[in-house]
Design a protein around this nucleic acid. Structure first.
Lengths: 211, 211, 211, 211
DNA sequence: TATGAATGAGAGTTCATTCAT
DNA sequence: AATGAATGAACTCTCATTCAT
């Protein structure tokens, strides 16, 4: 069906935006849409409609649909991951930093659900789009490195106890976080985000803090 | 009513198979294809080519492309999961059973790589196909239940030590397995299957066996 | 879907029939099917299933699907029109003959409904199949000729009164019959077969018999 | 997600039209095509070719092929039936109105031939498409009602003579019109439109006007 | 910049017909 | 004579992309 049927937008309503502004608006709309409906099943027409512009505007500002997808994860990074990492950096202790990570990643807040859904969809999409695969690998590297640093700091200060290499602890921690999130957010399993959070919190308590 | 066929094209290689045989051949070919290229980007024509038949033959034997996808996971179940579960049932001890699971799931054997790739793709596909979502949830339930039973048996016999509820241990174990597999198989990260296996083996040692 | 899924018919159940017998069985099954579902939407697989044979058997005995369609109308002719014409020939009077025609064509008996449905479908089909168009024209010719003869006989014997050419009366009568049947059988109109029959009977009474 | 387009093929003849204009052009082309070749055997590609656009343009402006078919009858209504009904309303007498109907429906003018061909095809198509069946029934209702009103008016003014209920007369008249049209337009019979028109005119003369 | 009509390759699916058994 | 698996052209519909306005 032709576009005017979907959205009445007269010539007068047209708003002219600098490329960067328009791109931003489109990417934000696309992010919500993808988290909602999944990467498969999204198309340019829907992104356009959700952005309040025409399909032509989308392809005018982006080289193609893949570019939008890449920008969406960059935005997610900026809106979700970076603030969380920043908060962790400001945490008074290593234990507090880990707890911030746990609480930030395992709740049923809408932006958390969105985050894990995007995560899952980009896993699958990475198969076909090398630039996404690249980004994905870098993300894991980033998180492992950050957690490694926190653990190292904590062990050094005596706050955390572990006879293992901090990198190994970080691997175990991030794997557990991922694995719990999968069961809590991405399957219809009875494991709720709360259960997952309790589990990871307990893990940290037993393995790294108390004994 | 379609027009009569224009030309009789005789294919020398035309081979006849009973439905069940042909279905099996197609599903096997599709399984390899999907593991290789991902679920997105697979189409009937490629499945047909990989199976050495025409597209008509595919839709003759299957009600639609979705039926093939469902059959592929059923086959994977039959080829990969069930033998592993059977071996675990025959294991002399709980620790041995867990080790079989670890070794069976975290190696760089081709069928293991295939398994995890299928796993990832069906995660994403489950969003849109309720029957796959259902199957996915059941799989998690199944594995958690089995691991719970093994842990319970081990604790009961004194072979394993854990003050936690076996179900909780099973959740932690399966989450860790999943999370390690993700990093080892599904990202370009430096974490190899061997590292992942070593990690999970060590986890079992420290948490459930010795200390 | 493969044929064995629809109809279990083992090798032992195969019945071998001379071509003419098999053709007859198929055509009978096809006639019922077409009257039921319409000409569009019928396919060889369904004709085969309804006939209790495989698709291969159909195309073995018939040169193509069109041949079946032609044979179906020939059968309808034989089962419906010829007996009716024969009864009319045996009628004691012209008026009785016309009444037999009216009663035979405008009731809600299943075979009458079938007859008019086939009639309608073959109208449309005739556009593309010249052999059907030919048959269609011949049918009209046949009925007009027969009715003309009856009217002529009736006028001659003084039984019917008409100042018009019997051929003209026959045209009016057959057109009225057709037009009433259309409204009674082929539209969702409130005109029932009974109403149509009463109307045509009345027409004959007023125009040809009484005053 | 489909692959990027391989080649930019610029069609010099590409012409842009507002949706409503393009829809109109397509429906007009489809109407001629259907009248010419029948409803069976029409497909989107042919409609596209006849409209001078690509198949994509067709499905861009219409929700599907069925929508075109429905629009074609709506257009036929608008181009053929409504003007005729309007002329009848303006007729000085009931007899003149009936004569306009007869002359408008039973000539060999191309638009009349087209009209009856469409009529026949939509009869058959109505079997499978409930929205068409509905429309068809309404059409018969409409014509019967209009003719009933004309006859009633004529009888009231003494212009027409009939001892029958005007609704019954209308049924007979419309059935006769239909039945004559079938023989004149839709079979290869020797009954020409002129003969049919003369017959129906005569019917009105004898039955409703003089004696 | 923005629009949205136009495009055509490619998707899943249907089905009369072919032909090895 | 009968079977039913195999075929591939043709169908409707989707959609990223192009481009005249």
């Amino acid at each position: 069906m032709p576009e005017p049927r979907r959205k009445a937008r007269s010539r007068a309503e047209r708003s002219r935006q600098p490329t960067e502004v328009r791109r931003q608006l489109v990417v934000e709309a696309a992010r919500v849409l993808i988290a909602d409906k999944g990467l498969v099943g999204i198309n340019i027409r829907e992104i356009a409609a959700a952005s309040g512009v025409s399909t032509g505007t989308i392809t005018y500002h982006f080289s193609g649909v893949n570019e939008i997808l890449v920008d969406v994860v960059a935005l997610e990074q900026q809106l979700f991951s970076e603030p969380l990492l920043a908060k962790m950096d400001d945490a008074p202790s290593a234990a507090a930093a880990l707890q911030l990570l746990i609480d930030g990643m395992l709740t049923d807040a809408p932006e958390v659900v969105t985050h894990w859904r995007l995560w899952r969809d980009y896993w699958a999409a990475a198969v076909r789009a090398p630039e996404l695969a690249q980004w994905h690998a870098e993300q894991y590297e980033l998180w492992r490195t950050r957690v490694t640093a926190i653990v190292a700091r904590g062990v050094e200060s005596g706050e955390l106890q572990s006879e293992l290499d901090p990198a190994v602890v970080a691997l175990e921690f991030t794997a557990l976080l991922d694995g719990l999130a999968v069961q809590a957010f991405l399957t219809g399993s009875p494991v709720t985000p709360d259960v997952a959070r309790a589990r990871l919190t307990d893990y940290v308590q037993r393995r790294l803090i108390g004994s």
